[in-house]
Design a protein around this nucleic acid. Structure first.
Lengths: 135, 135
DNA sequence: TTGACATATGAACAGATGTTCATATATCAA
DNA sequence: TTGATATATGAACATCTGTTCATATGTCAA
């Protein structure tokens, strides 16, 4: 049961056709009204999309997966994903801004780790979908 | 415990500095080797990123959230998200290609619904992160 | 100080992405 | 058939994104 739990709204089953939906008579007027009532608001949809967009890059996925098992420094991460430290640093800044990773400085090194346990869950759930879609 | 379960690899604790990681002596050689051993391969990272990238757009998030509660036709979805039917149709094609939604034709209408239960879980888990990050 | 190393960051550029517009396909009614 | 409606799709275009390069900041050792 995803997202908002608003009070169920009363829905007229048959309506005059209007600009809100197709002109055909359809019981979907009800479905549409239901969807309207419980749909996420634009701000939440935007925040969700922002989070997923950050996960939508293979390099960042590998970084997150790598630090899921314990903190790593920038240069180790760069070696791991096979990219420049500059590139990895840019990615890490985005991940930091979006609160997906946390930074800890120790001398010259900076160690990154997951900032939020939900990330591990997201990656695991994503992986289930990928496995299912591969059949 | 995310992702691949490979046999734990034996790791020398202290190594000579090489191009693989920072030149400083550090116990991180161990952490890096551990990360290497259990890291996702590139193809899986790419597939995961592809899935998340599709979720990384607010319009598509709203579409998926809308159809999570029951199938809706293109024109209702367009009304719901406030975009042209063409735009929504393009989004739906991508969602179909990535196996996130399923299409069912009934006369002239085409009804879309979620193709995979993991999607609901992904959205819910994303929402938890968003709520946490908002504090 | 000075030099070396680890990381961060701004600018630039190529490639990807989302929307619009025009047009095509599919279904139904007359 | 013809016309209307619902959806799909290709092209074009503006915007966004990821990487590279150059440079800056911060830390440590000498």
């Amino acid at each position: 049961m995803p997202f908002s739990n608003q009070a169920p709204s009363p829905v007229p089953v048959a309506e005059a056709p209007d600009a809100d939906h197709c002109e055909v008579f359809s019981p979907d007027a009800e479905a549409l009204a239901r969807a309207r009532a419980r749909a996420v608001d634009e701000a939440t949809a935007q925040a969700l999309a922002d989070t997923f967009r950050v996960l939508g890059d293979p390099t960042r996925v590998r970084i997150l997966d790598a630090v899921a098992d314990g903190e790593l420094c920038v240069c180790d991460l760069a070696a791991l994903v096979g990219q420049s430290e500059s590139s990895v640093s840019h990615h890490l800044r985005l991940l930091r801004t979006m609160r997906l990773v946390r930074a800890r400085r120790d001398g010259r090194m900076v160690y990154y780790s997951l900032d939020d346990d939900h990330i591990t869950g997201l990656l695991a759930q994503g992986r289930e979908h990928v496995q299912e879609a591969r059949r």
